[in-house]
Simulated assay, not measured.
Amino acid sequence: MKGRTVLKSSIGAALLCLPLITSAHARPAEEMGQRPTPPRTTGRPADPIAVTDTCGLRMAVRYSGTSATPKVREALVASVAHNRVRWIRPGTAITQDYRPDRLNIILDEDGRVMTMRCG
């Protein structure tokens, strides 16, 4: 019976200290003389298109999966409101310069729009 009493009193003492422990951690870091820790992020935005649309990607994304016929190309350029569009077929040599205002349209072997990105 004595062992149970010690156990109960140990648990009771621990429970009494719990508010003291949590209140020390609940104070802002500035009060404790520390710098606040920035929140952790995954490094990726939730919606990459919404963060920085420097090339008209939001307006062009509706053409994904379509054939890049002259009519579709003309409509896509009109929807992004600029002509800095690069059509890239498989095996096409392209420059590696990064231009955030340029829209890169990546096509498959059949000339369908597979994906697109700024740059």
Rank of each mutant, 00 (worst) to 15 (best):
A13I: 15
A13R: 04
A13F: 14
A14K: 10
A14T: 10
L16Q: 05
L16H: 07
L16Y: 01
C17K: 00
L20W: 12
L20Y: 13
T22C: 10
S23H: 09
H25Q: 14
R27T: 08
R27F: 05
P28R: 09
A29M: 02
A29L: 13
M32S: 02
M32L: 14
M32Y: 00
G33F: 03
Q34P: 00
T37I: 08
T37M: 12
T37L: 13
P39S: 03
R40E: 11
R44H: 06
R44E: 05
A46W: 06
D47T: 11
D47E: 13
D47M: 07
P48E: 09
P48N: 08
P48G: 07
I49P: 01
I49G: 01
V51A: 07
V51G: 00
T52P: 03
T52W: 11
T52Y: 09
T52R: 11
D53S: 11
T54G: 09
T54W: 00
C55S: 03
G56D: 09
G56W: 07
L57M: 10
R58E: 13
A60G: 02
A60E: 02
V61K: 14
V61N: 07
Y63T: 02
Y63S: 06
Y63D: 00
S64D: 01
S64E: 00
T66N: 05
S67I: 09
S67E: 06
A68F: 01
A68M: 11
T69R: 07
P70A: 03
K71Y: 02
K71V: 10
K71L: 09
V72A: 11
R73M: 13
L76T: 06
A78E: 14
A78Q: 15
S79K: 10
S79G: 01
S79E: 09
S79W: 04
A81E: 15
A81Q: 15
H82K: 06
N83S: 15
N83Y: 03
R84K: 12
R84V: 01
V85H: 04
V85F: 11
V85D: 00
R86W: 04
W87G: 05
